Computed example of a mutant assay.
Amino acid sequence: MTSRITLISPATSPSLRQARFDDGDSLDNGGVVKARSAAGSLPAAARVFLSPSVRCRETASALGLDGVAEAELAGLDAGRWRGRTLEEVMATEPEAVGRWLADPDCAPHGGESVRDVCERVGRRLDTARDTDGRTLAVVEPEVVRAAIVHALDLPLAGFWRLDVPPLTATELSGRAGRWNLRLGQPLAAP
Rank of each mutant, 00 (worst) to 15 (best):
F159V: 11
D130C: 07
I8R: 13
L63Q: 06
L42W: 14
A107R: 07
G31C: 09
V149I: 14
E70N: 09
V33L: 11
A46N: 05
R129W: 14
D22Y: 15
A71F: 07
G31F: 09
G133S: 11
L167H: 07
A151S: 13
R47C: 01
D163R: 15
L73F: 01
E58Y: 04
L50P: 06
A96M: 01
A102R: 12
D130H: 13
L16H: 13
T135M: 14
P108L: 06
A44R: 15
D163K: 14
D66M: 13
R115L: 11
L27Y: 08
R134M: 12
A19G: 12
D22G: 12
A188Y: 07
A146W: 12
L156M: 15
A137W: 03
L65N: 07
R129N: 06
S15L: 04
P94W: 07
E171K: 00
V164D: 04
A62K: 06
R115C: 10
N29T: 12
L156A: 13
A102C: 07
D28H: 14
P141K: 08
A147Y: 05
P14H: 01
D153L: 14
R161D: 12
G75E: 05
R182Y: 15
H109K: 07
M90P: 00
R178C: 11
L50S: 04
R36I: 02
S9Y: 02
G30C: 06
I8S: 12
D23M: 09
V114Y: 00
V143A: 08
A45Y: 08
D105T: 05
H109Q: 14
M90H: 03
R120F: 02
P108K: 05
R82A: 12
P141T: 13
R120I: 01
A69I: 01
D103L: 01
A189I: 00
G83Y: 00
P94Q: 01
D23I: 08
S173D: 10
R80Y: 02
A74I: 00
A128L: 15
L172K: 09
V54D: 01
G184D: 10
L76H: 06
L152F: 13
A146L: 00
R175T: 15
D116I: 02
S173M: 04
G184T: 14
V32I: 11
P10Y: 09
P141G: 11
L27R: 08
V32D: 03
A38W: 11
R55Q: 14
R120P: 02
A62R: 10
P43F: 01
